[in-house]
């Protein structure tokens, strides 16, 4: 495979049976075959049928991405694999909790910026806030970057969840 084919990030949704070890199978596949994981989220999405949805952002040449999808689809407990990046328009969201400790002007500025980014205050003490910010990874990253000079002490990010636009299910 050619070395100069472009490496592109792809967002892949995987519908799996929610059974013990399924995440290890998916993650083990990536580490065992040397693929990248940029972001990974997983949670049960259908309790009745016991299904989980895994959203993976990965990078690779087109040939590698094709391999990743085929390898994922080959796992016995995997129902469906969809490459949202190539299968039409889609939306991506990430959530972050951002803890800022500051007083005086910095505290006021942090709150003002949170407002601009439509971040919610979900915890407040005399010298600290915890903000909840949602949006594209870029937006979350920008917000976290701005907080760095304003007393940022802690960040937790969910990683990306994604969905195709329009009425079709996965």
């Amino acid at each position: 495979m050619s070395k100069d084919t472009p490496v592109v990030a792809h967002t892949i949704s995987v519908l799996v049976a929610n059974e013990p070890g399924i995440l290890a199978r998916v993650v083990g596949l990536f580490s065992g075959r040397g693929y990248n994981i940029e972001s990974l989220t997983v949670a049960e999405t259908d309790a009745k049928q016991s299904l989980s949805r895994i959203t993976i952002v990965t990078k690779g040449t087109p040939m590698i991405i094709e391999q990743i999808k085929a390898q994922l689809a080959r796992l016995v407990p995997v129902y469906r694999v969809r490459d949202l990046t190539v299968e039409g328009p889609h939306i991506e969201r990430e959530l972050a909790l951002v803890k800022v400790r500051s007083t005086g002007d910095k505290r006021v500025e942090a709150l003002r910026l949170a407002d601009v980014f439509r971040a919610k205050v979900i915890d407040a003490k005399a010298d600290s806030f915890v903000f909840e910010v949602t949006g594209s990874s870029d937006k979350v990253q920008t917000f976290v970057g701005l907080m760095e000079t304003l007393g940022l002490v802690d960040v937790g990010r969910t990683g990306i969840v994604a969905m195709s636009r329009g009425g079709e299910p996965l």
Partner: peptide, 8 residues
């Protein structure tokens, strides 16, 4: 096995 196709 679709994963054998276009692998190498």
């Amino acid at each position: 096995d679709p994963s054998s196709i276009n692998k190498n």
